[in-house]
C-alpha cells in the first residue's frame, strides 16, 4: 500500500522531529533540510535511512544530494516507493 503525499510529509516531519528536534508543524514542503530544519549533512544520512525504512524505498547516496527540500524528498519517495 503506497503512502500518499500527506502521509509522506507527516512521516518526514516525525523523522526530522526525532533527529533535529524541529516541531512537526514546521516541516513543510517548501522547507530546506539544511537551511530551515537544522539537518546537517550527517543528520541527512539519518533522515534518508529512516525514510527508506518507513516508506520501503531505496534512496542511493548519489540521489541524496538532490533532496534539498521536504518537497524534493516527498516527490522522490512518491515516485520510487515499492
Amino acid at each position: 500500500m503506497a503512502a500518499t503525499e500527506k502521509e509522506i510529509v507527516d512521516g518526514l516531519a516525525e523523522i526530522v522531529n526525532e533527529i533535529a528536534g524541529i516541531p512537526v508543524e514546521d516541516v513543510q514542503l517548501d522547507k530546506s533540510f539544511t537551511d530551515d530544519l537544522d539537518v546537517d549533512s550527517l543528520s541527512m544520512v539519518e533522515v534518508v535511512v529512516a525514510a527508506e525504512e518507513r516508506f520501503d524505498v531505496k534512496i542511493p547516496d548519489d540521489d541524496v544530494k538532490d533532496l534539498k527540500t521536504v518537497g524534493d524528498a516527498t516527490k522522490y519517495i512518491l515516485e520510487h516507493q515499492a
Binding site: 550527517l42 543528520s43 544520512v45 539519518e46 535511512v49 527508506e52
Partner: peptide, 10 residues
C-alpha cells in the same frame, strides 16, 4: 551496514 550512525566517528 546501513544502520550505523553517520555520527559515529565524530
Amino acid at each position: 551496514v546501513r544502520r550505523v550512525s553517520p555520527h559515529t566517528v565524530p
